[in-house]
């Protein structure tokens, strides 16, 4: 049996809102030690989502036996809308379940809402992702990166990320012209999350699809910082930390034809 209780329904709502435009169907893998993990690839095979909700994400978590819950995220999203952000949210599944029970509890009133979501058999490719040695790692405020991804998408289909020891530069070239934003490393002692950290072994210059970056920055609601790991001629890793665990996106780059 699985029973996972979130202190705030908003955490799961934000997570599902961050991934459901990229993947529609995915398997939630549940286990006592790892909590709930998800790996899902978008239909175009350009973006991979790796989610890890450790047991620490939950106020209470038990999973007696490993289980896989096949979920339609659009349907799950419909149910999650029914609860309030501050509610307790509990996911309950029996062993070998054909449905997932979702319970919202209001913290002040004696109101309990219960929903049952039908589960699906989802056959999806699982990819092996080894820990990569990265050429660069950038940690910056997620709101800043989100603004760049959203603004530059109006100018160009691609966003170039150029990292040197001194700076990270985001650059877009479109029909109407071009633009760039440069950030230099900076430590904000009063607000550490406002700091910009650049670790560089080798400079990189990579280009990514603006459409995918716009999907990725939907997760900015989950964390005030984002870590971007870049390696020449390899997929980039965009990571948002959860209270315990992470939401990672791996994005394949664009290359000169």
């Amino acid at each position: 049996m699985l029973e996972g209780k979130f202190d705030q329904a908003s955490l799961l709502k934000k997570i599902i809102d961050s991934i459901r435009d990229s993947v529609k169907l995915c398997n939630f893998n549940c286990s006592q030690n790892d909590g709930i993990t998800v790996q899902a690839i978008d239909d175009s095979r350009v973006l991979l989502i790796a989610l890890k909700m450790d047991p620490g994400c939950f106020q209470e978590f038990r999973c007696d036996r490993d289980m896989v819950l096949g979920l339609d995220l659009e349907s799950l999203g419909k149910i999650l809308k029914q609860g309030n952000n501050e509610d307790y949210l509990t996911l309950i599944a029996e062993d070998n379940p054909d449905s997932l029970l979702i319970v919202f509890e209001d913290k002040k009133k004696d109101r309990i809402s219960e929903f049952s979501l039908k589960l699906m058999d989802i056959d999806s490719d699982v990819l092996t992702i080894d820990d990569m040695d990265n050429d660069c790692s950038i940690t910056m405020p997620s709101a800043d990166f989100s603004k760049i991804a959203r603004d530059f998408k109006t100018m160009s289909e691609s966003l170039q990320i150029i990292v040197t020891k001194e700076s990270v530069k985001f650059k877009a070239e479109g029909q109407i012209g071009s633009g760039s934003v440069i950030f230099k490393p900076h430590t904000d002692l009063d607000n550490p999350d406002e700091s910009i950290k650049i670790d560089m072994n080798q400079p990189v210059n990579l280009t990514f699809g603006a459409k995918y970056l716009n999907d990725i920055v939907k997760a900015s609601t989950l964390s005030s910082t984002i870590t971007i790991k870049l390696t020449d001629k390899a997929p980039a890793l965009f990571e948002f930390k959860l209270p315990s665990g992470y939401l990672r996106y791996y994005l394949a780059p664009k290359f000169e034809d």
Partner: peptide, 14 residues
């Protein structure tokens, strides 16, 4: 023009 690469060319199927 730039061409979008595919994740399957970087990661192996399990």
């Amino acid at each position: 023009a730039r061409k979008q690469s595919n994740l399957m060319s970087f990661f192996k199927k399990k």
